[in-house]
């Protein structure tokens, strides 16, 4: 859901001119102040300097960015610790968003073929799980994946662990970091992180794909079917080409959303595989208290997110233009 939809209000309504232009200006100023100044402040402070033991001061130094990209001791020593965190943020987000869209697509397609009433019921459920706070979702998956209860326990009790050990899969799981000597374990692992992230955006994926899929003309697929095309053929040659752009656009939006996810990474990712969002938090409010460096990391995150958003916007525009 973005305000992009609202740009459709282009046709001018027969409403007279505004008589109070100052009201419009005040509204504009207020929105600029609230929605834009925070981002500008982050950008400006990212060029600031930390004062040891106190806080920070205004400055114009690129030291924070240098520290992010090549390490603080450059050029004597080069470290890519912070770039690596950005890499993990991108890595988790890419897999999780693609996974979410790939599974939400058939679901949404089936959903739009249901009756209006059934659609409403499903939408209520999906919106409710969409709005559920990340802290609760992480809590639920944490219980499900923790070693003393949930899935590992189920593996143990049902004998699946023994079966895995007999067939040799257990060693494979251990290599992937999904098992300890005694049983399977999912915390902490990339698997748990990506699974939870994917779950987090799955309802968003449904909501984003819903308009495009529900506007799909059923006569098109019917025509293809009467002419003897197999259901698979209909899917690949009629449906997929029509929704290709919304599919890519939604994946990009979800990807941007996941770039900033925090709780999931803190709880489920291995300490060595944390992301930039976590680092921002640590710098600004955590142990290190280095606001300018935190701001610089936030700017990198912001620029990355903005790039992909622009791309998504472009794709949405193109799909609407057709």
């Amino acid at each position: 859901m973005t305000a992009v939809d609202s740009t459709k209000a282009e046709m001018t309504a027969p409403v007279p001119q505004m008589r109070r232009p100052w009201g419009t200006w005040a509204l504009g100023a207020l929105i600029l102040f609230l929605a834009v100044t925070p981002f500008i402040l982050v950008i400006v402070i990212s060029f600031g300097q930390k004062i040891e033991g106190a806080g920070w001061e205004w400055d114009f130094t690129l030291a924070n960015y240098q520290r992010f990209f090549v390490g603080a001791l450059w050029p004597d020593e080069v470290t890519f610790l912070h770039l690596q965190r950005l890499y993990y943020a991108l890595y988790y987000a890419v897999i999780a968003s693609v996974l979410a869209v790939a599974t939400a697509f058939p679901f949404t397609y089936l959903l739009t073929r249901q009756s209006r009433r059934a659609q409403s019921c499903w939408l209520v459920f999906i919106l409710a799980s969409l709005s559920l706070s990340e802290v609760f979702i992480v809590m639920g998956w944490d219980v499900l994946l923790s070693n003393r209860s949930g899935l590992p326990m189920l593996f143990e009790v049902s004998g699946a662990t023994d079966w895995l050990k007999r067939t040799g899969w257990f060693d494979v799981l251990r290599e992937w970091g999904l098992a300890n000597p005694r049983n399977v374990k999912f915390k902490t692992s990339e698997f748990a992180t990506i699974l939870t992230m994917s779950y987090l955006v799955w309802p968003y994926a449904v909501i984003l794909l819903y308009p495009a899929l529900s506007r799909l003309d059923p006569s098109l697929t019917e025509a293809a079917r009467t002419m003897g095309a197999s259901p698979t053929k209909v899917m690949t040659s009629v449906i997929l080409p029509t929704v290709k752009l919304p599919l890519i656009g939604s994946t990009l939006l979800l990807f941007v959303f996941l770039l900033g996810s925090y709780v999931t990474v803190v709880v489920f990712a291995e300490p060595a595989k944390q992301t930039t969002a976590v680092a921002v938090y640590e710098s600004v409010r955590g142990a290190t208290l280095d606001a300018p460096f935190g701001a610089a990391q936030a700017v990198v995150l912001l620029v990355t997110a903005a790039l992909f958003l622009v791309l998504a916007q472009y794709l949405t525009k193109r799909s609407e233009a057709r």
Binding site: T2, V36, P38, F39, V42, F257, A277, G294, A298
Partner: peptide, 23 residues
Amino acid sequence: LAGLGSLPFALPPIVFGVGLGFL
């Protein structure tokens, strides 16, 4: 203006949060 007003919702909330903290 509408686009700018939607920025906070579209961009990673952690960045907006840090910015608001400063503001």
